[in-house]
């Protein structure tokens, strides 16, 4: 049962919710609705004064360009479900801002600056999605939709804090008397309170929910490395190859006879037998 048990306005712009779900406590940041407008302006400083819809367009171009060789107006129309005329209009505005080079034949290309701005927006989007999906356990569809809505209204600082917050929850999931202040300390210094590590040891409880051995991940799914166990030599080999806590790994495919598997991490392919992969505990992302 989830329920809000505390509700505090910590500044002009923020409201904080404390939630409980089962044994776990989560906090949630939200914007006080009234203050939204004021915040947008503050948060978007140096962001070329983009409207939310322009940001959506930039993001859409970036995402498409990651998957395809060229981006066409048609692609954006389809992706965002808007009219061609609106896309063309938006591209003009973005071109004026120096973010997009809109060429003939309906091809769109981001400028260097455009890539920078778009990546920042996209990163924010991903972080927000993770926050909603993993911390609040919102279903994937809602998380994606809501992440889109929030993303235009939140600045760099807040994003960074959110990433830290997610990390903090991962390592110190159970609250303590000074939980929030511990987080603040962590956000500033990066060091966690001692009891977090201790408790992990004492209870032997897996800190991260939904963790499983890498060997049992399905083909196509992604995970983040939590810990590596196993034989000295094998463990060291895995670590040296970049399988360190926090690394994102994707099970790309399995060999024709089911073993070994091909895992993508840090931009390269690594093949391991399931036996070796079982030494790696991952937190399932998707």
């Amino acid at each position: 049962m989830a329920g809000i048990f505390l509700f505090e306005k910590i500044s002009e712009n923020f409201v904080i919710f404390f939630l409980t779900k089962g044994q776990k406590q989560y906090i949630m940041l939200a914007l006080a609705n009234k203050e939204r407008k004021a915040y947008i302006q503050e948060g978007n400083e140096g962001m070329n004064d983009l409207t939310p819809s322009l940001e959506d367009y930039l993001e859409a171009i970036l995402v498409t360009s990651l998957r395809r060789k060229v981006v066409r107006v048609k692609d954006i129309v389809r992706l965002l479900n808007v009219k061609t005329a609106s896309v063309v209009g938006a591209m003009k505005t973005l071109a004026q801002k120096g973010l997009v080079a809109h060429e003939r034949y309906g091809y769109i290309e981001l400028t260097h600056q455009g890539v920078a701005v778009a990546s920042e927006i996209y990163d924010r989007h991903k972080t927000l999605y993770r926050f909603l999906r993993e911390v609040l356990d919102v279903d994937a569809e809602t998380a994606a939709k809501d992440a889109c809505r929030i993303e235009h209204h939140i600045g760099k600082k807040t994003t960074e804090r959110m990433v830290k917050f997610i990390k903090f929850i991962e390592t110190c999931p159970e609250g303590g008397p000074l939980w929030l202040s511990s987080f603040h300390h962590y956000a500033k210094t990066g060091s966690r309170p001692e009891h977090c590590a201790k408790r992990e040891e004492a209870t032997g409880q897996k800190v991260i929910p939904r963790s499983s051995p890498l060997s049992s991940l399905k083909v196509g799914s992604k995970g983040r490395v939590v810990q590596i166990t196993g034989d000295q030599g094998i463990k060291r080999r895995l670590l040296d190859m970049g399988i360190v806590p926090g690394t994102e790994v994707k099970v790309e495919k399995a060999a024709p006879l089911g073993d070994p598997i091909d895992v993508v991490l840090k931009g390269y392919h690594l093949s391991l037998r399931r036996q070796e992969a079982s030494a790696v505990t991952v937190e399932v992302i998707e």
Binding site: A197, Q227, L239, G242, V244, G246
Partner: peptide, 18 residues
């Protein structure tokens, strides 16, 4: 290791990669 919550070998390699 008690303070880090990880074994040292992992921690050192993680630091390098970090």
């Amino acid at each position: 290791e008690r303070r880090l919550g990880y074994d040292l070998e992992t921690a050192l390699v993680e630091r390098r990669y970090g």
